[in-house]
Design a protein around this nucleic acid. Structure first.
Lengths: 332, 332
DNA sequence: TGGGATTGTTGTCAGCTGACAACAATCGAA
DNA sequence: TTCGATTGTTGTCAGCTGACAACAATCCCA
């Protein structure tokens, strides 16, 4: 079970539930006290005892309420770049219009405005309901600022299949809202190394560039870090700003927009990428002995199956001599 | 937007919704006719027209019904190895007991048994509701056999975060239930190459071994294929059956159980794995020139930054001579 | 019967992310 | 002021899966 799944279950499980392992415990949320583990049998019989009384409560339908969407404000931490009215939002509205709202949203009472609510997650459904003139089905829970952000992250990140850059912006927004780095880690189910990398990218790439590129679902940490590093060069930054302002930029899909931006950021390279990446290595006799890839400083050899397997070891042992020969040729 | 997300939205959107691109269309499900695309404006105004009449229907709460769980049978295609009563199922029951059922299940009328239902997804919640003596909240849709299986796959695979082997068994079960290979592809949002690999593994590894190992969340295609290949050897198969029957096997976590099974399948290797994977390469002068990894037939060199970058090219060019030297030493 | 199209199988690779290690920076207590 | 603990940063790697190519097998039609 992944960390994310553990913490989602923990968030929704009652305090009497079987606790997760200690390193999965989510701080600040209702949970069994640290280190104390109740036996499965005990909690099972607890459940049996509570069943009868809860049946009546459920018969009263107490869990889900209907709320006027005009009373609901979004989470104080945004987890999308901007509110988009796009095809998927229109589809959501139509689905709700035809089928009703099948999944309730999570709300808390607004901390400052009496009689109003804030949403932890599901705010697109809130907006859709408001535009359709419908009440929204909601679960209302007492949540602290941290609990709200963690719930938002735990629910939205898997459901929305957030990309690297969306998670990065969300992480930065959580920190800019005043939360500790550990809240970022909990909300996104990540370790401190990954939190550091996400926030660094979000801070290094200007938000107008991020917004213009968009979700970029297939672009991961490495390539965003490369783009972020390039932002330190003012010439590169200028070229990217020009590229995103060019006509036609917005018409490409998001991954392609990233590639355009990245390409604009890098100076044209003399290196030919049409050169075959994997080349055969042939002996003087014409026998194929290996396949080789040479990229920057990395040389990778795959010795042919017909060749004695310790040829690789042999090459390895010969490297010092080869290096001396190489150096002597350099000196000539 | 991933294929999976597109097809989930398509499944739930009304036929009037904005259609997905043609290559995302899900066969056999309600959808806009092939190739005909309605303008966004047209469908938007259609929605406005329907809003008033739908408001009243929603006020009557028509979308979600409550059903006696005793009337509901599981999907004809199983997507879990076995019905497990484990900690997570107890947590689910407690969550429903305390909070109510927040996400409805999807049902169809049973094709053969009048007055009864089959579940496309959510059957764990059905079982939990039955054990708690509660009715279950459900959406009831007319679904063909294929539509049911596709809906089940599209909903359960992301929600349950199914591992490679769980997806493999589900794929095999779909095919064994008589469905075409393309239904497998649609249900799991995969291409025919991946479908072939999943089903091959599920057929090659005996189901008792798969069941004993379990979900194995971190074990992917490559390692399952390696284990599957080993199952052709009757000695290996026997050792694995012994390993899974041994005391203590069931107490490890699922990934560890896989490793034990895989280890039992392979003959003990003289190769030492404690040998450092990455070794420095040092010149006769003592200068560090590269880092090297030698695994089976693959040799990878990372030339040190202080060394002239074309040393890699130099080594590449010297390989034919090295091979001749190597062969001449073999002959002595 | 032959050939083209379709489907199934196998191999390979790129880029992804989880995970961890090592080092740097910061903080707080003694 | 120093030192240990904690937190942040950076690098690296293993194994994953999506994607595609190439070839094999099957099917169907002329």
């Amino acid at each position: 079970m992944s960390k994310r799944t553990d913490t989602i279950k923990s968030l929704f499980a009652s305090p009497q539930s079987v606790p997760l392992s200690a390193d999965n415990a989510v701080r600040g949320l209702p949970r069994v006290s640290s280190g104390s583990v109740r036996s499965l049998r005990d909690s099972f019989s607890d459940v049996e005892k509570e069943n009868e009384e809860l049946k009546e409560r459920l018969a009263a339908g107490a869990a889900i309420v209907e709320v006027d969407p005009a009373l609901i404000e979004p989470s104080p931490v945004s987890d999308r770049f901007r509110d988009e009215v796009d095809g998927s939002f229109e589809q959501l509205k139509q689905s709700i219009a035809h089928r009703g709202q099948e999944v309730p949203v999570l709300l808390r009472m607004h901390p400052d405005a009496s009689g109003r609510y804030q949403s932890a997650y599901g705010h697109r459904r809130v907006r859709a309901a408001r535009e359709l003139g419908l009440k929204v089905k909601a679960i209302v829970r007492p949540l602290s600022d941290e609990e709200l952000v963690v719930a938002q992250g735990l629910e939205n990140a898997p459901r929305e299949d957030l990309s690297f850059i969306e998670r990065a912006v969300f992480a930065m927004n959580i920190e800019d809202a005043g939360h500790a780095r550990t809240v970022v880690q909990d909300a996104l189910s990540i370790d401190r190394a990954e939190a550091s990398k996400l926030i660094a990218v979000a801070r290094a790439v200007p938000s107008d560039i991020v917004g213009a590129i968009g979700k970029a679902a297939k672009i991961g940490r490495g390539r965003w870090q490369a783009l972020a590093d390039l932002m330190a060069d003012s010439g590169a930054l200028k070229r990217v700003e020009e590229a995103i302002a060019a006509p036609g930029f917005g018409e490409r899909d998001s991954d392609a927009r990233f590639l355009v931006a990245h390409s604009a950021a890098t100076k044209p390279s003399v290196k030919s990428t049409s050169e075959p990446r994997v080349k055969p290595v042939v002996a003087a006799s014409g026998e194929k002995i290996a396949r080789a890839q040479l990229v920057d400083r990395d040389l990778k050899l795959t010795i042919d199956k017909k060749v004695a397997p310790d040829f690789g070891q042999f090459v390895l042992e010969k490297l010092p001599e080869l290096y001396d020969l190489f150096r002597s040729k350099e000196r000539q």
